[in-house]
Amino acid sequence: MAEKKWPETWQEVNPGCIVFRPGSSRDYHTGTWRAERPIWDNSKCIKCGICYLFCPEGCISEDEEGYFAADLNYCKGCGICAHECWPGAIKMVGEE
């Protein structure tokens, strides 16, 4: 499906409002909702991946060295990762 301007005209609305672009929610950046952001201290990180597993946004990913970081375009700053990181490698810090 070609990109269309938004909002669409009635002629451009997909039949039945079918959405043909899987995962297109990523167009919208929920990162703007965030009041606090998670900061990883890799010296404490044991690379267990708990933060990745528990993230409701699925926005935490592993880098080449096995450490983790959140995609701040989507991180809503819920703080679950920091709370669940038992080695204490993640801290929540206020957004500017």
Binding site: P7, E8, T9, W10, E12, V13, G16, C17, I18, V19, F20, P22
Partner: peptide
């Protein structure tokens, strides 16, 4: 994969 039966906000409902 397609999504059938999406939510329509006021900015699209009239056009739908």
């Amino acid at each position: 994969p397609v999504t059938l039966g999406a939510l329509g906000l006021p900015d699209i409902y009239t056009e739908a």
